[in-house]
């Protein structure tokens, strides 16, 4: 396989410098929150992710090398192919990310990234350790290789995508110019994605271009009257990296083991996060539904004139 540099390695010094700058900004303005135990957990998760990439990366690499022979075209390393691959990879990222939020098997991996109640640049590095084992790369990583983009190019543009996403994990930047907010993923859009406010749940899946969310109906703008509350629906009471890494996997194992039928087991494994056969737990969809009901009750309570006549 043709070798291309890993942009993430080159970006690490910039990541560190920007985190230091944001910490100083946090201290002087109080607009951003950093807390050492949370920062340590996020950064250790990031380091573990790098280690797992080295240790388990061969699984994905082996797969891409294998399927390369079935590619429809032989695109090669031409300049325009990098641009096209970058855009297509971001499109695939949108769907991969959307499924990571709606299929528990993949959520068990991705939940790690959302598990901090803080939202700062260190949160960007809070990444899972077991991603290759979820086999998500087979479902979402294969397309570009099968079209004919070289696997090294696909890996390269995928890494560029992740480098772009680093800077949007901040509260230090308010809103970018409107033309930029319209096309690109920005700190404002991504704050919404990390928020647990029911209005914001499961929105703004974009990596680089927010246009995918606008196209597929998952876009939600950040509102000044509704500050983001970060984390997950059931926030973790621990900063232990191992527990952060494994908690949802253990939850799946536990639920599947106690399932009363194959259908239930399948639901716990591949259903949306929070799914339960009797609806006693809350998926994002149910939370949004209950919140909407609550809101309409509140509106009726505030304005009895809108109550329907019986």
């Amino acid at each position: 396989m043709n070798e291309l540099p890993n942009p993430i390695y080159f970006a690490i010094p910039a990541f560190i410098a920007l985190i230091i700058a944001e910490m100083i900004h946090a201290r002087s303005t109080r607009r951003v929150n950093y807390e050492p135990s949370d920062t340590a957990a996020s950064l250790i998760m990031g380091l573990g992710n790098t280690v797992s990439g080295v240790v388990l990366g061969f699984i994905a690499i082996g797969w891409f090398v294998y399927i390369e022979r079935f590619a429809v075209f032989d695109i090669g390393f031409v300049w325009w192919a990098f641009i096209l691959a970058f855009v297509l990879d971001d499109f695939v990222y949108y769907w991969s990310h959307r499924f990571a939020h709606t299929v528990r098997w993949w959520w068990a991996d991705h939940v790690v990234h959302h598990s901090s109640q803080h939202y700062n640049l260190s949160t960007a590095l809070r990444q899972p350790w077991l991603s290759p084992l979820t086999l998500k790369f087979i479902f979402f990583g294969s397309w570009l290789v099968l079209i004919g983009f070289p696997p090294a190019m696909v890996a390269f543009v995928g890494a560029l995508n992740l480098v772009y996403q680093f800077w949007i994990h901040t509260e230090a930047v308010g809103r970018m110019p409107s033309w930029f907010e319209a096309v690109m993923n920005t700190p404002s859009h991504h704050r919404v994605h990390h928020a647990t406010n029911p209005r914001y749940l499961d929105r703004n899946y974009a990596g680089v271009f927010i246009v995918w969310d606008r196209m597929f109906g998952t876009f939600e703008p950040e509102r000044d009257d509704e500050p983001c509350r970060y984390g997950i629906v059931k926030n973790l009471g621990t900063r232990n990296p191992l527990k952060i890494c494994l908690h949802e996997w253990l939850g799946i194992i536990n639920d599947v083991r106690n399932a009363k039928s194959w259908r239930e087991a399948l639901g716990y494994w591949l259903g949306p996060p929070g799914w339960s056969p009797d609806g006693s737990r809350l998926s994002s969809k149910l939370i949004k539904q209950r919140w909407a009901e609550q809101q309409s009750r509140r509106e009726v309570g505030e304005n009895p004139a809108t109550q329907p006549a019986e």
Binding site: I12, I19, M23, Y34, E35, T39, I44
Partner: peptide, 16 residues
Amino acid sequence: LAIAGLVWLNARLGGW
């Protein structure tokens, strides 16, 4: 090393 340094800096800067 960078992680250790950043966490140390975070603790030294305070602000939480």
